[in-house]
């Protein structure tokens, strides 16, 4: 479990992370979203103790990262897939990490197999594609079999198979009761992977919601030849096509019953959610306005 308590990081005049208080719970995939420069990577760096917070604290299971004796056995992280010495083989990269944690070499072979990197492990990391580097980075995060996983943009550079593999992996890690914290720019991917979303804008927390709530506030799409009376009866309805209405904040039951009462034929009636992408853009737009006003 990760607890952020008033976490703040300033670089000169810029505030990268602004008074962030957050608890990430076990058994959950928490998606971390925000525009570029919102402070996502900085937050992760602060959790790992790579940067020192200006104020506040980041705690993993109640302890600061620096106080963990074998940190990779508590929290595994992937911040930068390209942070590998190009002349060192993938296997030696992981073995060096394993030595520092007292993890046996056999575990290195396990995570290599788990990430499909066994074949490539003897090659120099400089020859890896971005996708292979991501896999190696994820192998490194899993090395200590940690209760907490933190991944910055893990699906970057992965092919569709790889993306699906990550999704399944993260879901199963959370199902095992681990805390999974993952940032991504791929909204549709987040929608399928995360249980909870934390949205950051200009270093501030602007949303912390269960996924259902962010995608739920949708409406109903109704299609038929003579929908004018329905549109007149429903103030929240809008034409989304010549014979298509979208009714915001309504359920198919309500719209279907009303169409029946008005005696209107209906060819199609289905719930539509705003995509997570829309919710996200709405949220971050406000944050940007707020930031601009400041």
């Amino acid at each position: 479990m990760i607890s952020l308590r008033g976490l703040t990081k300033r670089y000169g005049a810029t505030t990268a992370v602004d008074d962030l208080t957050l608890d990430l719970t076990p058994g959950t995939v928490t998606g971390f979203l925000g525009p570029n420069g919102a402070g996502k990577s900085t937050t992760m760096r602060l959790i790992l103790g790579l940067d020192a917070p200006t104020s506040g604290a980041a705690l993993i299971g109640g302890r600061r990262y620096a106080d963990l004796d074998r940190p990779l056995r508590t929290i595994g992280a992937l911040l930068d897939a390209k942070a590998v010495h190009p002349a060192r083989s993938g296997r030696d990269h992981l073995r060096a990490m394993a030595r520092s944690q007292g993890v046996p070499d056999q575990r290195v072979e396990e995570v290599l197999a788990l990430t499909g990197m066994t074949e490539a492990a003897r090659r120099r990391a400089g020859t890896y594609s971005l996708g292979m580097s991501q896999r190696l980075g994820i192998a490194g995060a899993l090395l200590g079999d940690p209760a907490v996983l933190m991944l910055d943009e893990p699906v970057n550079g992965l092919d569709p198979d790889g993306v699906r593999w990550i999704r399944t992996l993260l879901r199963s890690l959370a199902a095992e009761g681990r805390t999974v914290f993952v940032s991504s720019h791929l909204m549709s991917e987040m929608e399928r992977t995360a249980d909870r979303l934390v949205v950051l804008g200009r270093g501030r927390l602007i949303a912390d919601e269960p996924m259902e709530r962010l995608v739920a506030a949708g409406g109903v799409l109704v299609r038929g030849p003579r929908l004018r009376p329905l549109a007149d009866a429903l103030p929240q309805a809008g034409w989304s096509g010549p014979d298509e209405l979208t009714v915001v904040g309504a359920t198919p039951e309500e719209v279907g019953r009303l169409a029946y009462e008005l005696g209107l034929p209906v060819y199609e009636l289905r719930p539509v959610g705003p995509s997570l992408e829309e919710s996200y853009l709405r949220l971050t737009e406000t944050a940007t306005e707020y930031g601009a006003r400041r």
Binding site: L50, P71, L79, K82, M97
Partner: peptide, 13 residues
């Protein structure tokens, strides 16, 4: 090579 990030994550002291 930026591996300092990995090294410090392994050995924070």
């Amino acid at each position: 090579t930026r591996t300092i990030v990995v090294t410090l994550a392994c050995t924070p002291s």
